[in-house]
Amino acid sequence: NKASVVANQLIPINTALTLIMMKAEVVTPMGIPAEEIPKLVGMQVNRAVPLGTTLMPDMVKNYE
C-alpha cells in the first residue's frame, strides 16, 4: 500500500503548506501520494483541513 499525505495539524484556509504540516500515512481512500510532499510545499489549501485529514487533490490550489 502506498502512503498518502495527511494533515499533521489543523491547516487554516489559504495557508501555504510547509513540511511540518504534513505526514505520510497509509489511508483509505488514498489521497495525494506521499512522494508529492516536496511539490506541495508552498502551495495553498483552498479550505480548512482538520488534523488527521487526508489531503485530496481538490483541497490544494493549482495542484495537478
Rank of each mutant, 00 (worst) to 15 (best):
P33M: 06
Y63S: 05
A48L: 13
T18R: 10
E36H: 03
N62I: 03
K23R: 15
I32D: 00
P38D: 05
G52C: 10
D58E: 09
N46R: 13
Q44F: 14
Q9W: 14
I20R: 15
N14S: 10
A34M: 10
P12A: 07
M43C: 05
N8E: 07
V41N: 03
N62T: 08
I13Q: 11
Q44L: 13
V26H: 10
M56E: 06
A48Y: 07
S4D: 00
V26P: 07
N14K: 04
L40N: 00
R47W: 07
Q44W: 14
G42P: 01
Q44I: 06
P29R: 03
I32Q: 01
E36V: 07
V5C: 09
L55M: 11
L19Q: 12
E64C: 15
P38R: 08
L51N: 08
M22Q: 02
M22V: 10
E35Y: 07
N46D: 09
P29I: 06
E64L: 11
P38Y: 15
V26Y: 08
K39T: 03
A16P: 11
A16K: 05
I32P: 00
N46I: 07
L40M: 07
V5I: 13
A34H: 14
V6Y: 13
K2G: 15
N14H: 12
V41L: 10
M59S: 10
N8P: 03
R47A: 06
N62H: 10
K23M: 08
P38S: 12
I20P: 05
L17V: 05
P50Q: 13
R47Y: 11
I13K: 12
V26F: 08
P50A: 07
L17G: 00
E25Q: 09
R47S: 05
V6R: 10
M21L: 11
M22H: 00
L19T: 03
N14D: 08
I37N: 02
T18A: 07
P50K: 11
V5K: 00
N8R: 13
T54Q: 04
N14R: 13
P57T: 11
M22S: 01
E36W: 13
I20E: 04
M43T: 05
I11H: 01
A3Q: 05
E25S: 12
A16C: 12
P33G: 12
V5H: 00
M22E: 00
P57D: 08
K23V: 04
P50V: 05
A24E: 09
M59N: 10
L51M: 11
T53L: 15
G52L: 13
E36G: 12
P12C: 15
M56K: 10
K2W: 15
I32T: 02
Q44H: 10
M56S: 09
E64N: 09
T18G: 02
V60D: 01
P12T: 13
K39A: 07
Q9M: 08
R47H: 09
M56F: 06
M56Y: 06
N8S: 09
A34K: 06
V45T: 08
A48N: 06
N14Q: 10
A24S: 08
N1Y: 15
Q44Y: 15
N1L: 14
G52N: 13
K23D: 03
I11K: 00
A7E: 01
L51R: 11
T15E: 09
V60W: 04
E36F: 08
I37H: 02
S4E: 00
Y63I: 02
G31P: 00
N14V: 12
M21P: 00
P12Q: 11
T28F: 07
V45M: 12
A34G: 14
N46G: 10
G42H: 07
E64P: 12
N1R: 02
K61C: 13
P33L: 10
I32S: 01
I20L: 13
N62V: 06
R47V: 05
I32M: 04
G31Y: 02
D58G: 08
M43S: 07
R47D: 10
P33E: 08
Q44K: 09
G31D: 00
V49C: 07
T54P: 08
P12M: 09
T15S: 05
I20F: 14
R47T: 03
I37S: 13
G52W: 15
P29W: 15
V49Y: 02
K23C: 06
K2T: 15
V6H: 06
E36I: 08
I20Y: 14
Q9I: 11
K23E: 02
I37P: 00
L51Q: 07
V41K: 08
V27L: 04
A16M: 09
N8F: 15
Q9P: 00
L19R: 05
G52V: 01
I20K: 11
A3S: 13
N1A: 14
K39V: 06
P57A: 11
Q9Y: 14
I20S: 15
P12R: 11
A34R: 05
P57N: 06
L17A: 01
M59H: 06
N46Y: 14
P12V: 10
P50T: 07
K61A: 09
D58A: 11
T15N: 06
G52P: 01
E64Q: 15
I37L: 09
K2I: 15
V26T: 03
M30S: 06
I32Y: 03
M30P: 06
M56D: 08
M43K: 07
V6E: 02
T28Q: 07
I13V: 07
M56H: 07
A48V: 11
T15W: 14
N8G: 08
L10G: 12
Q9V: 08
D58C: 15
T18S: 07
Q44C: 12
L51V: 12
N14A: 13
E64D: 12
N8Y: 15
M21I: 05
A24Y: 12
N62A: 14
I37T: 04
K2L: 15
T53I: 11
E25A: 08
K39W: 08
I13F: 11
M22P: 00
P38Q: 08
G52T: 04
L10F: 09
L40G: 01
P57S: 13
V6A: 03
V45W: 00
P29M: 11
M59Y: 08
P33D: 09
T53M: 15
V45Y: 00
K2A: 15
M43Q: 06
R47K: 06
V27W: 03
A16T: 06
V27D: 03
T28G: 07
V41Y: 15
P38V: 04
I11T: 01
A3L: 12
A7L: 03
N1S: 13
M21F: 07
A48I: 07
L19H: 03
K23L: 07
K23T: 05
P29N: 11
V26E: 15
M30R: 02
P12K: 06
E64A: 14
I11Q: 00
M30K: 03
L19I: 03
I37V: 04
A34Y: 13
A24T: 11
L51E: 06
V60C: 04
T18P: 01
G52Y: 05
T54M: 06
L40I: 04
A3I: 04
